[in-house]
Computed example of a mutant assay.
Amino acid sequence: MLHPGHLETLRRARDLGDVLVVLLNSDDSVSRLKGPSRPVVGQQDRAALLMGLRDVDGVLVFDEDDPRTALDRLRPDIWVKGGDYTADLLPEAPLVRSWGGRVEVLSYLPGHSTTGIVDRITAGNVDAH
């Protein structure tokens, strides 16, 4: 479910480099990480939505539970992750740094999360922000 928090993170990530390739969890990966009711939107539709955004140059769908294998294939100069943790806590940080890459963590836009949206819909509160 694409929301303003995603858009802000993607915009800020694009500003850090020349090309933005989004690594996207496959449907199977999302289900393993978030539970059997997820994803709400399938990987083909999620990839199509991302490719429709002006800030996104490419999308790579990966099936693993973390992006290390995909990152090792791409070897980006900058790996950007949205979240409320530090780069040192990301399991992929040592890999990215091994080829001289930089790891950036962008803070989330407060009040916007897919889980929060799903919870509000499930509770029947679809108009709440």
Rank of each mutant, 00 (worst) to 15 (best):
M1A: 13
M1C: 10
L2G: 07
L2P: 04
L7S: 11
L7T: 11
L10V: 03
L10T: 06
R11C: 02
A13V: 02
A13K: 05
D15E: 15
D15I: 01
G17A: 15
G17S: 09
D18W: 05
V19T: 15
V19C: 14
L20M: 08
V21Q: 03
V21A: 06
L23S: 07
D28W: 01
S29C: 02
V30M: 00
V30S: 10
S31T: 14
K34I: 03
P36Y: 09
S37R: 11
P39R: 07
P39F: 03
V40F: 05
V41T: 14
V41Y: 03
G42Q: 00
Q43K: 04
D45L: 09
D45Q: 13
R46I: 02
A48L: 12
L49Q: 12
L49K: 04
M51R: 15
G52D: 13
R54L: 11
V56P: 07
D57V: 06
G58W: 06
V61K: 01
F62Y: 15
D65L: 14
D66N: 14
A70D: 04
L71W: 05
D72I: 03
R73H: 14
W79R: 09
W79P: 00
G83A: 08
G83W: 06
D84F: 11
Y85E: 11
A87D: 05
D88E: 15
D88Y: 03
L90C: 02
E92W: 01
P94V: 10
L95W: 09
L95F: 11
S98Y: 12
S98I: 12
E104H: 00
Y108K: 10
P110L: 02
P110I: 06
G111T: 01
S113I: 12
T114P: 10
T115G: 08
I117F: 08
I117V: 14
V118S: 01
V118A: 10
V118L: 14
V118E: 06
R120H: 08
T122L: 13
G124A: 10
D127S: 15
D127I: 13
A128C: 00
H129C: 01
